[in-house]
Lab assay of single mutants.
Amino acid sequence: HNLTITQGKLFFHYNPKLCLSEIHKMEEVSGTKGRQERNDIALKTNGDQASCENELLKFSYIRTSFDKILLRWEPYWPPDFRDLLGFMLFYKEAPYQNVTEFDGQDACGSNSWTVVDIDPPLRSNDPKSQNHPGWLMRGLKPWTQYAIFVKTLVTFSDERRTYGAKSDIIYVQTDATNPSVPLDPISVSNSSSQIILKWKPPSDPNGNITHYLVFWERQAEDSELFELDYCLKGLKLPSRTWSPPFESEDSQKHNQSEYEDSAGECCSCPKTDSQILKELEESSFRKTFEDYLHNVVFVPRKTSSGTGAEDPRPSRKRRSLGDVGNVTVAVPTVAAFPNTSSTSVPTSPEEHRPFEKVVNKESLVISGLRHFTGYRIELQACNQDTPEERCSVAAYVSARTMPEAKADDIVGPVTHEIFENNVVHLMWQEPKEPNGLIVLYEVSYRRYGDEELHLCVSRKHFALERGCRLRGLSPGNYSVRIRATSLAGNGSWTEPTYFYVTDYLDVPSNIA
């Protein structure tokens, strides 16, 4: 807008934040220059609390790290170098490059900038070799853009010569660093050979998330399962459950009422301010606690030095998902009996873990797994792929695949051998790939016309006998059925096997 004052003059007093240069501009645009008398524009009460600059400061050096910015700028000295009290560095987070010096300023003089007072450097006698002032900004957020400017702080001049310097606002972004852990990993099994893994992005990506790394490792069953005799009275049979499938998407929606109208769909109840505040506090606490764990609990591995020492970490090797089922080394339970199943799973520490690289999504279907087997899954978020990966501390989750139908069934015939004193040795093959492992066998036998009897055969007993022995049988026709019990439950009964026990007292003698 054009402003013209045809008559009258300007009068400025007691404006401590208004620089004289701005008042002189007002004289020019209003056409009143030359009308004012000496005392109409006070030299001592206008701009006496402001830094009124008329020179431009330029930054000469900028260096960044993930949490620091090192700045240096060209030296500046007023005509009387004693008038320079120091520099004021202003900075704040700036997602967009549209910041002005006066953003967030209120009537009390406060604003949204963080201000650092910096002492002037030592003055050199040689004007050509003056030290460049600077400042190291610490405690910054990774991968965050900051708006920065600097200006001088000078003393009051009796001659009211307006001098000083100020830089333009520059924008500097800190470097990326390792992201925080992925949030809320959930693993479920939808079949006997697959596990579905879902997660949420890290709360602090500290860069642009480029991919996720998912490692999985087959877990050995508890050692007590191999040692305890679950045929003993009072000892509860062990059981394991597989990871249940995901709930429906509708039930997972946030901010939804727990109660549904019987007449149909209901609208979600909005969260109160107290609920939102509580969630923010919980989120802040979780982030602080995660940072504490990362800094205190997890110790970084030592990389190899120039002395030739090897990095103890196993090298990563990509495998196809079809090879995942046989990740671990199978060892027989008892070496003397080769027909026992290889369900003991000690994992070799030198073995390469299978892994998958996930790009542009937060889910993965891990296939080719062994049925009813526990897996430990390790999830890392990465925001750099080359020249070397920059990934987060791992988040861990466990899951067990679903049982395989008929995996616990005894394959092959049940054979028998009759000894003296009416002892019958029953023999059968253990299931080759049971659900988890076989903890015991149930032997059901009966003599024709009598009630059915049951015998429990422990895992250890089966390994020693290759089956079991029935003792003290009365003469007669017998039928026997056997079924295995694994961590997933009972298998199917075998087809009945028949044998006849004679009275050993009636056996004919070869003595003449």
Rank of each mutant, 00 (worst) to 15 (best):
A463G: 12
R319H: 07
G325H: 09
S243M: 13
R469A: 03
S363V: 15
V507R: 14
T497V: 09
K233R: 11
S344A: 06
D409L: 14
R316A: 08
S251T: 06
Y441Q: 01
S398F: 04
K406L: 09
E404M: 13
F226G: 04
T328F: 14
T340R: 07
E389C: 06
N435H: 01
A309H: 12
L225M: 12
N208H: 05
S444F: 13
S509V: 11
N421G: 06
W428P: 00
I418A: 08
T343G: 11
S243C: 06
L369A: 03
S342E: 09
F215R: 13
E290L: 13
E388G: 15
E290H: 10
L321P: 10
G306S: 08
V393T: 09
V296T: 10
T210Q: 05
L470D: 01
R459H: 15
N206Y: 03
F246S: 10
K236Y: 14
I410A: 08
T494V: 01
N206D: 03
L321V: 09
G374N: 10
H425M: 05
F246P: 08
L440F: 07
V457M: 11
S304Q: 13
S274C: 15
V393I: 06
P314Q: 05
F298H: 13
Q252C: 12
G325K: 14
H294A: 14
A407Y: 07
V331M: 09
E247K: 08
E221D: 05
D506L: 13
S274Y: 04
K432S: 14
Y230L: 13
K271M: 05
T288A: 02
S398I: 10
V507I: 11
R447K: 05
E282F: 13
L228P: 05
D222T: 06
R446W: 04
S492L: 14
Q275G: 11
P205M: 13
E221T: 05
N383D: 05
K406I: 12
E378L: 04
T340N: 08
T347I: 13
P245C: 10
T333S: 07
L379Y: 04
N510I: 13
M427C: 02
H461R: 09
K432W: 08
C267F: 15
T343L: 06
L369G: 02
E227Q: 09
F462P: 01
R447S: 10
F337L: 11
H416F: 06
H211M: 15
A405F: 11
S262H: 07
V439D: 03
A330D: 02
K432M: 05
N490A: 04
A220G: 14
P245T: 12
E465T: 11
S268P: 15
E224T: 06
P349D: 15
K317P: 07
E279L: 15
V414Y: 01
G322Y: 06
N208G: 12
L437A: 12
P349M: 06
Q219V: 06
A335W: 06
E362T: 11
V299T: 07
E221P: 05
I366S: 00
E389D: 10
G207A: 02
V414A: 03
A394N: 08
S367C: 09
F298I: 11
G325I: 11
D204S: 14
T415P: 02
V334Q: 05
F499E: 00
P431L: 03
A484Q: 02
V365K: 02
I482N: 00
V501P: 02
V359M: 14
G306M: 14
E388W: 07
N326R: 10
S251F: 11
Y500W: 13
N383R: 06
L440D: 04
R370V: 11
C231Y: 03
H371W: 09
V345Q: 14
E265L: 08
C456F: 02
N206M: 11
C468G: 03
E389N: 13
K406P: 07
S304P: 08
Q380V: 06
F215S: 09
L235N: 07
T497E: 08
L213A: 14
R483G: 01
E227Y: 06
E495F: 14
V423I: 08
K361Y: 14
L455M: 15
G489M: 09
G449L: 12
S315I: 12
V297R: 12
S479D: 02
D409K: 08
F298Q: 15
D409P: 00
P245R: 14
Q384F: 11
E420A: 06
E282M: 07
V327W: 15
V214S: 03
E495S: 10
N206P: 04
E281K: 15
P244V: 07
P238W: 15
L225T: 14
I482C: 03
T497H: 08
Y375R: 01
